[in-house]
Design a protein around this nucleic acid. Structure first.
Lengths: 337, 337
DNA sequence: ATGAAAGCGCTAACAC
DNA sequence: GTGTTAGCGCTTTCAT
């Protein structure tokens, strides 16, 4: 039985090869002054000794990490996953690693998470949404790295933002529904204050209906986020019960919209014949289901990619655009006129 | 304009308060010998100076991080997201932070990622699946931290595993389908070698059919992973074209199964009347769609939670069970007898 | 309950 | 192209 040995360090490699630790260090850094042969010999020896580079030590000494911190409400949501995917792919090319945390749609949890993530001294921090606890806001304002809020147009941006107005997006759909003749419109979801994007969609719905002088009281709650398909189905059942003459319903997301659709299928209610359904987020699901779902494309992946590019620009010392406004797109499909 | 200042360190707090840096350090550590008043005073001063604890320095000095490294094939997959969620929730309670990377179903990428993650000196590393490149395997064998392979029962486990046999799981479904009278069975997906779990499901399907002495040639490819709903739909179209008398089809996941179902809906083909469909993974989608999907529950979240507990046991110095075998469960729903 | 000294593994800064 | 020196911010260890 071999006794457990201390893992090798750069000093061990240097001693073994009769060079200085500095030379070993240079061999591991991409664009440093070192001869090709020396570098290859060092890397070979490193592999032979089972050496693993220590990022912790490197980060401490150079006083910069290769982390970008990111918080999202939920890991299990295709929209946010797309944003993280876009971010991650673009940043990986520059050897930046995502440090991901999820808030479970809870601002207290977000505060805790932001504090924890900042302890790693990330190069930048990306948060979802433009509403935070007072302390979280203070932490983000104080920190000396780029702060990017996403998926929203914050009332008072902390640093940069890459997002869109959730209420404007919903208005697009309401305007279309009214234009094609629907008059009795309902909204499912957005009742829990925790999900600020959901709440904004709901209030955008109300404002849009008021602008058209239509009834804005057909609001069905769906419970605490994340709103599942099942909760969408339950909400649809309640809607049909409470306001049976509703002509079109807009749901807080495609997931709840699909749940609502399945409820209609179970009850034998024709969509869009008897009631039209609109969703939000352009999930894969809504494109393939039968009937397919009218929805709003918020370009989740673009949000991530553009955020990454903004970060890279800032880190490269370029004077970037301060904010990036995404323009959501209404996609008409079979679930509505 | 205030010139950019260096962020405060523990030394700054100590100087400001007339105590030693060690006292400040103790104030930030949970169970250390320090009076309640001193701790509170220190924390208050820290908040006042805008101090942020430096985990990098702490990790370097104490030679242990609070990271657990995790690789999954894709961030945008509800099953893996559930596993990560289970892991993360259990580990967060012990102040361990997940360091997540995704491989995009590519073993080369997995190798690159494992190397990068190990540089952070995590406390443990969790990988998805039991097949790796030779070098990745060597890295994992050499490293002196717990290694846990998940979602599989590896032929030669590196360290521990928390998983199930994908082929056994599929056999359960085949056996049931044969028992209720289906004789002409097909399989969609699992053709790309990249997704080893998919391949195992496919070969498990073939083996099970051979055991029953039935035709095992009805195999429809679905392209490179991740297999989308859309690819499931396209595969179903090809299946109906190539083997129109097929009585039941098993899909590599619920997502492709749902795609296949929608294709039948578009073509006016009765499910399960004319053809039965089975999926894999017990996604929310399959429970709520109409007809709901017969599937296999692999307990994704349990895999994460049990992996977390295994890690915590090992780190606590307990002699844990080496491996945890998950027993997948066949769930019968409306899409089949 | 608090303090002093040393050093984790690496790299910035400077020398040659 | 390579070497020397010092130190990043914290915590281990030992002392009081």
């Amino acid at each position: 039985m071999i006794p457990p040995r201390k893992p090798p360090t750069m000093v061990d490699i240097a001693r073994e090869m009769g060079v200085s630790p500095m030379t070993v260090s240079r061999a591991f850094k991409a664009d440093s002054l070192i001869s090709k042969e020396t570098r290859e010999a060092v890397l070979e020896m490193a592999e032979r000794l089972g050496y693993v580079f220590d990022s912790t030590a490197a980060n401490l000494r150079s006083q910069k990490s290769d982390f970008v911190a990111v918080t999202i409400p939920s890991i299990n949501n295709a929209n946010f996953a797309d944003t993280v995917g876009g971010l991650s792919d673009r940043l990986a090319a520059h050897d930046l690693q995502i440090l991901l945390g999820y808030t479970n749609y809870d601002m207290q949890e977000e505060e805790r998470l932001i504090e924890q993530l900042l302890r790693r001294k990330p190069q930048a921090i990306v948060v979802t949404g433009g509403k935070h606890t007072a302390r979280a806001r203070r932490l983000l304002e104080t920190v000396s790295i780029p702060v990017i809020e996403t998926w929203d147009v914050p009332a008072e941006p902390i640093g940069h933002y890459v997002g869109f107005s959730n209420s404007d997006a919903i208005r697009q759909m309401v305007d279309h529904f009214v234009a094609v003749g629907y008059r009795k419109l309902a909204f499912i979801g957005g009742d829990a204050g925790r999900d600020t994007r959901g709440s904004e969609r709901r209030s955008g719905f109300i404002a849009a209906l008021q602008a058209h002088g239509l009834d804005d009281t057909r609001l069905i709650g769906a419970g605490t986020p994340p709103i599942s398909m099942r909760e969408g189905a339950a909400a649809m059942a309640r809607l049909l019960d409470t306001y049976p003459d509703t002509e079109a319903v807009i749901c807080v997301s495609d997931l709840s919209a699909f749940g609502a659709l399945t409820e209609c299928q179970r009850l034998g209610i024709d969509v869009p014949g008897r009631i039209a359904i609109g969703g939000f987020g352009n999930y894969d699901l809504g494109e393939i289901c039968v009937p397919s779902l009218t929805t709003i494309n918020a370009f989740s992946r673009d949000i991530g990619e553009k955020t990454a590019e903004l970060i890279l620009d800032i880190l490269a010392g370029e004077k970037p655009v301060r904010n990036i406004q995404i323009v959501p797109e209404l996609i008409l499909r079979q679930s509505s006129r």
